[in-house]
Simulated assay, not measured.
Amino acid sequence: METFVTEGDGSRWMRTGDEAVIRKSPNGNEHVFIVDRIKELIKVKGMQVAPAELEAHLLTSPLVNDCAVIPVPDDAAGEVPKAFVVKSPSVGLEESDSMLKREICKHVEREKSRHKWLKGGVEFIDVIPKSPSGKILRRLLRDQEREKRRKAGAKL
């Protein structure tokens, strides 16, 4: 897919990788709202982080059986990576979740640049949602995270 596209009428477009919705206000003005990102990149302080890169690295940890990484909003950085992790069967029941989360974060911090660190945290789940072809359904995780944050924000 090309970044710059020229239509038959001569108009030019730039494909940003963002999903947008155009809505008309009551007074007739059209507004463009960016609602999602088509490209699977997380933008941390303007730097791009590929979720697949972090997922591949996380899978090298003996604590991780499966994982998915999504962007979560951050006041200072715009977005930061958050990992959803299925624990390895070798992880003992006596090990606390907080200790495991710290170890998983350290695993990333030892090998990756600071902007790729899991500042959004680590959350343990039973299964990573995937399509029948095996592709990670990050949108489901993003929607669940957005709803959880909305509910948490409403409890002020």
Rank of each mutant, 00 (worst) to 15 (best):
G134A: 02
D9M: 07
R15P: 07
D18R: 15
V72I: 01
S98H: 09
S11P: 00
P129T: 02
D143R: 11
R15K: 12
D66F: 06
L118M: 05
E94S: 14
L59E: 04
S25T: 15
D143Y: 02
Q144P: 00
S133A: 06
D75Y: 02
D143G: 01
F84G: 05
E30D: 14
R149D: 01
Q144F: 03
R23N: 03
R12S: 09
F124G: 06
K39Q: 07
A68Y: 07
K24D: 10
K101P: 10
V64H: 14
G120M: 11
E94Q: 13
P51W: 12
L54G: 04
T60A: 09
A83D: 08
M14W: 02
I42L: 10
M47W: 02
N29Y: 06
W117I: 02
V35Y: 11
V64T: 12
V80L: 02
E123F: 04
L59I: 01
K87H: 10
D143E: 15
T60Y: 08
V72R: 15
E30N: 15
E40F: 12
E30Q: 09
M99A: 12
M14D: 01
E145G: 02
P71D: 05
G17E: 05
G17S: 04
G153A: 04
L54F: 01
V122Y: 09
G153D: 01
H115Y: 12
S131R: 12
S98R: 11
D36S: 06
T16R: 05
S11K: 13
F84L: 03
K87R: 14
E30K: 09
L58I: 12
P73D: 15
E95H: 00
S133D: 14
E109F: 03
I136V: 08
L63G: 06
H115S: 01
C67H: 13
A68D: 04
L63C: 05
G121A: 05
K148S: 15
E79N: 07
K43V: 00
K106N: 01
P26Y: 07
S90Q: 12
D36V: 14
P129Q: 12
V91W: 00
L140M: 07
N27S: 04
D97Y: 05
V91E: 13
E30M: 11
A20Q: 09
G153H: 02
E95I: 14
L118F: 02
E111K: 14
V21T: 00
K24I: 14
K135D: 01
R139P: 00
D9W: 06
K116Q: 13
R114G: 01
R102I: 08
A76H: 02
E40R: 15
A56N: 08
I104A: 07
S131F: 03
V32Y: 04
D126Y: 07
I42Q: 10
G17F: 00
I125F: 04
A83V: 10
E103F: 03
P51M: 15
R149P: 01
E55C: 13
K148G: 09
C67Q: 10
L141D: 11
G46W: 01
S25C: 10
D75T: 14
D75F: 00
S113T: 06
K24T: 15
V86F: 07
G46M: 11
